[in-house]
Design a protein around this nucleic acid. Structure first.
Lengths: 124, 124
DNA sequence: AAACTGTCGATAATCTATTATCATATTCAG
DNA sequence: CTGAATATGATAATAGATTATCGACAGTTT
């Protein structure tokens, strides 16, 4: 049976309160504030576990390590800040009807990634 | 000075004739047809060299090894076939004006990746 | 309290992609 | 044609991300 440990709880809290996709390293750093001595292995273990249970879903951005975000959100995409390397959620999506794919191709899903500078980096 | 070797020529020809972004392994396989004994190290060396010279540009797709395509094409995006794992070029782009980024964020570039089944895989 | 089971942290091991090494071979200017 | 510069292929090494291992520990169940 799955137990409720301080580490696991901290990892969940970190991801909920961040409200954006986080890499294992980001989760580790933020998690250490809540649980002293938190280890990277525990982070990976729990990210995997929470993903398998459906509570998290992986977010792959080009050339970046996999990030994880809390599941259940409506269709959306992501923004990657070039300064701080943090990913953010972008609501809404105009769809992909306007793309001209070669004839005979069937489009099933799509990803959009916006790159730029986030508000807090821009302010500095 | 840069020399003209059969291997380098083959790698260039492979990328031009494919007309789509290719991974080092794909380039190796296609290159072996033209130059017997072509090695993966040579492929990596030349992809790097041709990228540095501006003749190629890297194409990163989420969770995929870097692919390379011939430079100089107008703004476009890519389609990844889930069956054969080949990437294709998608012309045109409706732009990203319709995305609502959080206030204070500055969008500089964007990537769109369409996923589905390509014509040749669909036909089978 | 003893046995169980799931979890933890440290760290070794693995995996994949890419680069470095090095002996041999090729290219091309003179 | 000849030699110095450059390239090649095999393979070892590296790098980054992730997983496996293992002894210790904690909360539960007998």
């Amino acid at each position: 049976m799955e137990r409720d440990t301080p580490q696991r709880r901290a990892i969940r809290e970190v991801l909920v309160s961040a409200g954006r996709p986080m890499s294992p390293d980001e989760v580790l750093d933020a998690g250490k504030v809540r649980v002293e001595g938190l280890g990277i292995a525990t982070v990976y273990r729990n990210l995997k576990l929470l993903t398998k249970s459906g509570w998290l879903c992986p977010v792959d951005l080009p050339g970046e390590p996999t990030r994880y975000e809390v599941s259940g959100k409506p269709h959306h995409h992501h923004f990657l800040c070039r300064e701080c390397d943090r990913a953010f959620e972008i609501e809404d999506c105009p769809g992909t009807q306007k793309f001209h794919v070669p004839s005979g191709f069937r489009v099933e899903t799509h990803d959009v990634v916006l790159y730029g500078v986030c508000a807090s980096c821009k302010g500095r």
